[in-house]
Design a protein around this nucleic acid. Structure first.
Lengths: 370, 370
DNA sequence: ACGATCTGTACCAGATGCGAC
DNA sequence: AGTCGCATCTGGTACAGATCG
């Protein structure tokens, strides 16, 4: 009807509300911020006026005076992979529930200048904290060197000064993976790890190594991939070649010169003992690995048992369905937000305990052939 | 040295700069905003003071007075899937290059209240435009019903009033997929589509249907999945059962009562003509499909040729490696940002032409068995 | 005199129109 | 005409002070 209700020229301000309710503007402020000492009757009047004018406080004005933006910066360097994406999504939801906005800056991996510009963009925006997802050590180093002036929360296992971390227990997950293989009867268990400077990858390597050591099994240096299926494929090709050479060697009965003992020797394992199990740093590399050995005429799990990590939605339908470790990405995203809240002093919750991935046994693992 | 350089109490303001440079604060403003009518000498002095004080203009103050936040809202409803994630990432980078911040709100699908709250959060933040990714018609309806007051840009093919859209040419992509199958010699080509209210899915269905019609091939109503591998698996199970029943029928020579003509009849195809090709709405469903038919003792592409859509990084390493349509998600993300810029009047570029997906032929398709 | 309730004014950190040199 | 400064405005919050029962 009137030009008050359908005012599209400008959004209603706190003064408009005050005028309509017949109070002063900071009484409105008190109502909006739920401060005490406002009579119920006036509160009602103000609230009614707010409804009528569809008043929304301006975050800019608020941020200007409070010096708090109620937004947190999110830097992701993990590409479009399922893990980082899920975490971002979940974190984002948790942030919204806590009435925080989140401003993102995705950067390309291995690019320090990209990290620098992302950081600067976020601090310019006055974010109250910055969270780093899919962090590599180099990225964390870079971020810490910049002196942003706001708390940094990173997805990392390693504690550092001036950095808050929250993590999944990749170490225990890796041990679970290897133990599963060992319980199945495997003795030669290789590892295809993620990139060298990935903290998660390093933790997985450590778990694999420790579990092997706990069972006095031989540790062959892990192959290093880059999380992509293609890197798994390349490793699979090498592995298949090894296995084939090994098999032909045992058929001809002539062991290679490098190995005095025959490849079938059980204990005092020779360098050529045939791998029967592989723990892959993630599901994607496991996929490439299966592809490679299949192309080479081998089959999983008959010739090689494979366990992945992550349990991406596709893993259940790989051929064969992949045994893997399920990570609770959603819970992790929430954990991230709750530590941010703690760091900001909004809550006094202690750091959440790292979540332990859950072993999901499917069809890519079996007892080794006798 | 002095407490000027290492001032951690408060960031420098425009007044601090003005004092140090010996000018008034809005001369500083002029310099910062690169306005004319400033003598080079004073400009130098001011710039030097800016450097020295590490002055950064406050976005809050600036937003307050200009009513422009230089922030774009991004709503994603596509989960952690590769497509939506890639688009978000790429869009984000493009936005940063254009010196815009992006504030995200990921929502759960099929939840109108979630969409509403996301929208409100973003408008509260004074975003200048809102981008919708992985939009379903219901979500777009919901978004449009809310009257946000800022331009809406959605990833959709359908043009609507008050909505700017940018899209990939799913229609042409689907025709390419089907044509590939036809050229291979397939005549019975089924489609497993995405969810009914997905705009992309509908476009893919349309392309499939039209290409079939153009070759006067029979159109069997598409099965409807939900993009997940599991839905592909379920469809695959049904399909495999059909094929098995069909095969046994042709062996016993007794066609089911519903079909007077034999299943081997070429033209006037009976309802039971065996499907030899499937066009899957995305790669994940194709994966589940392959899994299902493999469990049923069939193999791709021997018994069934399958083509996917998206070309996710895993597709190359599926067993068999998947023939699919590659979408340029990265380019699409940039296109999104450039239409946002156009809508905002920052540039006068016209709407980018929809990108046509590229057929990538791998090993999941072959000639049908005679 | 006093606590609850409400108001006036001074900021926050910039942008902008107008006037002065 | 080209440079520059003054005053005013943006939309809130915070604190001191005023009014009232």
């Amino acid at each position: 009807m009137s030009d008050d209700t359908e005012d599209k020229a400008r959004a209603a301000t706190i003064f408009d509300v005050a005028r309509l309710a017949g109070v002063s503007h900071q009484t409105v402020s008190r109502v909006v911020n739920e401060l005490p000492n406002v009579r119920p009757a006036t509160r009602q009047r103000v609230e009614h006026a707010i409804q009528q004018l569809r008043y929304r406080p301006s975050p800019a004005a608020r941020a200007l005076v409070t010096r708090r933006s109620r937004t947190i910066g999110l830097i992701t360097s993990g590409g479009a992979d399922f893990g980082p994406s899920s975490i971002s999504l979940s974190f984002n939801r948790a942030a919204r529930e806590a009435r925080y906005a989140v401003s993102i800056a995705s950067i390309v991996e291995h690019d320090p200048t990209s990290m620098r510009s992302a950081l600067e963009l976020l601090v310019r925006q006055n974010v109250e904290a910055i969270v780093l997802i899919a962090a590599r050590t180099s990225m964390i180093d870079e971020a810490q060197s910049i002196e942003v002036g706001v708390p940094l929360v990173a997805t990392a296992s390693a504690d550092r000064s001036g950095l808050h971390t929250v993590s999944i227990d990749h170490y225990s997950g890796a041990r679970l993976a290897v133990r599963h293989l060992i319980e199945l009867g495997h003795r030669e268990i290789r590892h295809l790890s993620g990139p060298a400077d990935s903290i998660d990858a390093a933790e997985r390597v450590r778990g694999w190594r420790d579990e092997l050591a706990a069972h006095r099994l031989r540790v062959v240096e892990p192959a290093v991939g880059d999380w992509t299926p293609s890197s798994g494929y390349r490793f699979g090709l090498e592995l298949a070649a090894d296995i084939a050479r090994d098999a032909s060697a045992s058929v001809t009965g002539s062991a290679p010169a490098t190995s005095p003992t025959g490849p079938t020797a059980r204990s005092g394992a020779s360098a050529l003992d045939r791998a029967t199990g592989v723990f892959s740093g993630n599901d994607q590399m496991a996929l490439g690995l299966v592809h490679a050995i299949t192309s080479a005429g081998l089959t999983a799990p008959r010739d090689l048992s494979i366990v992945g990590f992550d349990d991406i939605p596709e893993a259940e339908h790989f051929l064969p369905p992949l045994t893997t470790l399920r990570q609770d990405f959603t819970g992790f995203g929430r954990d991230l937000m709750s530590t941010v809240l703690a760091v900001l002093g909004d809550t006094d919750a202690s750091d959440p305990a790292p979540r332990v991935p859950e072993l999901v046994v499917r069809a890519s693992t079996a007892r080794p052939r006798a």
